[in-house]
Design a protein around this nucleic acid. Sequence first.
DNA 1: GTCTATACAGTGATAGAC
DNA 2: GTCTATCACTGTATAGAC
Lengths: 215, 215
Amino acid sequence: MAEATTDLVEPELSTPERILQAAERLFSERGIGDVSLREITTAAGVNSAAAHYHFGSKDAVLEELFTRRAEPIARQREQMLGALKLNRQGTPQLEDVLRAFLKPALDLLKTPEGVAFTRLRARMVFEREEVRRQVMGKSFDRTNEMALQALAKALPKLAPTELYWRFHFMLGTMVYTMARPGRIEALTHDSFDTYDADAGLEQMVRFVAAGFRAP
Amino acid sequence: MAEATTDLVEPELSTPERILQAAERLFSERGIGDVSLREITTAAGVNSAAAHYHFGSKDAVLEELFTRRAEPIARQREQMLGALKLNRQGTPQLEDVLRAFLKPALDLLKTPEGVAFTRLRARMVFEREEVRRQVMGKSFDRTNEMALQALAKALPKLAPTELYWRFHFMLGTMVYTMARPGRIEALTHDSFDTYDADAGLEQMVRFVAAGFRAP
DNA sequence: GTCTATACAGTGATAGAC
DNA sequence: GTCTATCACTGTATAGAC
């Protein structure tokens, strides 16, 4: 049995794996941006240059973390979108499409690592650098296109322009909710909160469905 | 006539003013976060310690910049919300309330400084530190409460829980659109964009109004 | 190949000289 | 009051040990 060089991550893992796990734990504890690479490598019990050797840069570590967390969401979305019930005309119900798209994302809020990932995602959405764009696209373009097609089927009369705008608005409500900005909480002096993932999903599906059906 | 120590900002301004102007210009050119305090003070033609002397920290400079840009928006909102047309029952039209709230924010996208501010705002929304919260609150809590009251009047049958959730979703569509994440643009290979502030306002009002009216 | 020690330029911040 | 000198720390790069 190998002795632990640090008790912060499982000792028998490979160096890159230790770095990723330590990074994710620190991010979920203290938020992204306030954690330096040196803290990560120290917590992982590896040399401070190891992160650069294995990943190339701090941003590359973030991207790797993002990609590996995003994949299960995309797969779950894919599966749910593929399993949609169709009516006699072969079209799915709007609410079912929305749920299939939104639930895998909002369910992340149920675990601390999910919340950390969610912050990472929100940050990536709002940094316009080309690299981040590609990372987001690699993870989500495919399922976004699937969702757009399913929505077009569910809303055969909706013009593409409106479809795109409303999909964009839906992403806004989703990302904003996932990021937990806390504005409503501040406004209502914490007598109301948006942290309940299940209630959020139901409320969001109703709100967004009505928006998609607007004249 | 004072000779210019730099041609980057008006030479006769006070030091703090020069710093703020230089900061805003650099942010709008290169985005926030990639600009160091030393670059700002150099561009402003002042000593590198001046920013700390006058503001206390880099974050304090950002907050000051944010607050002074936010104030006109809040004032415009206040004026538009106060000037709402009321029907015979003394209630405003939902769409009018939404427009009064959303237009001052979305109009920012029409100028480069507005876009820079908008990014700053999006970034602030997603950093959960207590300080930033207070900054956002100081700028926007008042008009948010005004908007909530007007919305409650326009939608007398809507329960408070639903009102809060839907207001939260509206903030999501607004902030997300203002931040221009470019996801739809990537999905449609730039054959469609969400950068038109006027079209965005109209689409958003329709979408959000339907969401607020959902059963 | 994997990892380490070490160095480097640039950051935000500050104490203390002028 | 203003500015210089300096601090501890960041992300990054590389030469060389195992």
